[in-house]
Amino acid sequence: MIVPYWRLSGFYFAYFALLGGIAPFLSLYFHHLGFSAARIGELVAIPMLMRCLAPSLWGWLGDVSGRRLLIVRCGALATALSFTGIFLRQDYLWLALIMALHSFFWHAVLPQFEAITLAHLGDQSARYSQVRLWGSVGFIATVVGLGWLLQAFDLDVYPVVMLAIMSAIFLCSLLVPAPPSRLVKEGGQLATGFIRQLLRPGVPAFFVCVALMQLSHGPYYTFLTLHLEALGYTRSAIGVMWAFGVLAEILLFALMTRILAFCSLKQMLVVSFALAALRWLLLGGLADHLAVLLFAQLLHAATFGSFHVAAIHFVQQSFSERMQGQGQALYATLAGVGGALGALYSGYSWTSIGPFWTFAIASFAALLAALVLQWRLPGRADMATENDRVH
């Protein structure tokens, strides 16, 4: 079977290029429009709330219909079309509607495309990381390029660039061929016993900590750009800082196979949370020192890279093959809930108690999660035994 490597990779490049424009610069654009920190936090939280709803709904539709590629194309087109409303008005309620509408369709796209990619790969699923890698490249290209662009031009150019990237996502989706039909509908049957597996030792604690990890990222994704700009960094330099974190993530992905051979999932998760607690304190209190900022961004390899890989493996080991879809959906949902709460609390606390204490709250959330996981997660041997019982 021939894998359309570059067409799949091109879609990931465009999709995560959009994320590279949203994560560092969306709050900066809202600040440019004159919104307060609280209103910025609310607007940034809306797409995260949509992440709690959209994946499950569109995933169900994909399972029932088997038309995943059509859903991807329609979702990508609807994302771009609904975003055009941002050029009509910029008042708070209208922007809230635009954020909700376009992100509802945007979050429908990736889970379906992941299934399409795996269907194309078939028994070559080990090549998935080689395809997904281009998403990180797209993210880096946008944060660096857009950082330079916003340094040279007015922020009014920002929505134009975002719409161009959304259009590129749709065009890339048109180039992707449909996967083999025999693989598209796999996993569409309902399964029983999900609650029983969800209540296995350590699993509820894990999902609570997933929400805590994303909550702790609230100040980072919502206010890091504004925080660094207030400390005197240029927008192009800020773009480089975001890119540096993603480069660290890519390097860790390259080494992950060797790391998993020596570390248990419990060890990886606990260390990831502990390093997240350290990272937020450094960003909140010492980000004006370039060396400290670079080190803090290097820790993105742990707070996203190792955490995400370990979390995906934990979900795979915690649920039987027929329950994987529900397990991954729950993981995405709780990540969305935590991210939304993180954006909201940081929006309200940023001006009232300041950047340091806002990041300190994030650090406490990550440290609390590390302690919970250390206490509640089974070790490697116990997890393997439970895994045998489930599978």
Results as ranks from 00 to 15, higher is better:
1 M>Y: 08
4 P>W: 01
8 L>M: 11
17 A>F: 09
17 A>P: 03
19 L>Y: 14
21 G>W: 01
22 I>V: 11
28 L>S: 10
31 H>P: 00
31 H>L: 08
32 H>F: 15
36 S>A: 15
42 E>F: 15
46 I>T: 11
51 R>W: 03
52 C>Q: 05
55 P>N: 06
58 W>Y: 14
61 L>H: 00
62 G>Y: 07
78 A>M: 15
78 A>G: 02
103 S>T: 12
106 W>M: 09
106 W>R: 06
110 L>K: 08
116 I>P: 01
120 H>Y: 01
128 Y>E: 05
134 W>H: 03
134 W>Q: 00
138 G>K: 00
140 I>M: 11
141 A>F: 09
142 T>V: 11
146 L>Q: 02
150 L>T: 03
159 P>E: 06
161 V>D: 08
169 I>C: 14
170 F>I: 04
171 L>R: 08
175 L>E: 02
182 R>T: 10
182 R>Q: 15
185 K>A: 13
186 E>P: 00
189 Q>G: 12
189 Q>S: 13
190 L>E: 14
199 L>P: 04
201 P>R: 01
206 F>T: 07
213 M>E: 08
213 M>F: 09
215 L>T: 09
216 S>F: 09
217 H>R: 06
228 L>A: 06
235 R>M: 12
245 G>M: 11
245 G>E: 11
254 A>G: 04
254 A>V: 10
255 L>N: 07
257 T>R: 14
258 R>M: 06
259 I>C: 04
260 L>F: 14
261 A>Y: 00
262 F>C: 13
269 L>F: 02
281 L>K: 00
290 L>M: 12
290 L>W: 12
291 A>T: 12
291 A>F: 01
300 H>M: 06
301 A>I: 03
308 H>W: 09
317 Q>G: 15
318 S>Q: 06
320 S>I: 00
322 R>P: 03
336 G>D: 04
338 G>Y: 06
340 A>R: 10
343 A>V: 05
345 Y>K: 01
348 Y>C: 04
353 I>P: 03
355 P>I: 05
355 P>T: 10
357 W>V: 02
359 F>N: 11
361 I>C: 11
362 A>S: 13
368 L>M: 12
368 L>W: 04
371 L>D: 00
376 R>E: 12
389 R>M: 09
